[in-house]
């Protein structure tokens, strides 16, 4: 494991914890897309089914369990515990427009036509676009709380660091996973507009507006 992979994982973990703590501390999930969080729970569930079939390392297993646990805890907070604060009227992205094409693509373009591998591929494709309901919600309301922008920053940074990790692994290990790389590039590109706003307008302000 190289430093980019590790900091990528930690950045991902930071994003997940930041969101969970924000909701817990403020006892509100205003401005958070429950749909994106359901998609992330679906991503982790379909990807980490290999917890049941193969053991890679204690680190790997621990992180997977934490990611899955936090994803479902977040969904629980949004749709059950703090349901009254959930801004469903602005969370109107049609997720079937993501899940259905992504599911079809996973069937067509994969490394191996086996159930677990198709589910893994589905999770990789779905993760690349799972943030769209959240970005759509922010563009609809025209603003995001600072802590939400920190969440998005770390979530975007994680896949960008993975891209460097893949370049590293290609040169030093000959490792090359086309599906992960292409999806990772798409995922990172989706955050670019946000990164720009975060860096140029985010500092010193309490709220970030994304122009529609």
């Amino acid at each position: 494991m190289n430093i980019f992979r590790l900091t990528g994982d930690l950045s991902h973990l930071a994003a997940i914890i930041i969101l969970l703590l924000k909701i817990w501390k403020t006892r509100s999930c205003a401005g958070i897309s429950g749909k994106s969080q359901i998609l992330f729970a679906l991503v982790f569930t379909s990807r980490y089914l290999d917890l049941l079939t193969s053991f890679i390392s204690l680190y790997n297993t621990t992180m997977k369990v934490i990611y899955i646990g936090c994803a479902y805890a977040t969904v629980y907070l949004i749709y059950a515990k703090f349901k009254a604060t959930y801004d469903g009227n602005h969370d109107t992205f049609r997720v079937e427009f993501l899940v259905v094409p992504v599911g079809g693509l996973a069937f067509l373009v994969n490394h191996d036509f086996s159930p677990l591998e198709i589910l893994w591929t589905f999770s990789i494709y779905l993760e690349s676009v799972a943030i769209l309901p959240q970005l759509f919600m922010i563009s609809k309301t025209g603003e995001a709380e600072t802590i939400t922008t920190h969440y998005l920053f770390f979530l975007g940074l994680y896949r960008a660091l993975y891209l460097i990790n893949w370049i590293w692994r290609f040169y030093f290990e000959g490792f090359f996973d086309m599906i992960a790389i292409v999806a990772g590039v798409v995922q990172t590109i989706l955050y670019c507009d946000f990164f720009y706003l975060y860096v140029t307008k985010g500092e010193g302000r309490s709220q970030l507006s994304i122009p529609t």
Binding site: R5, D50, S114, L116, W120, Y162
Partner: peptide
């Protein structure tokens, strides 16, 4: 034939 290609990343 393995159940799944091993994926060592998260």
């Amino acid at each position: 034939h393995a159940l799944q290609i091993p994926h060592d990343e998260l």
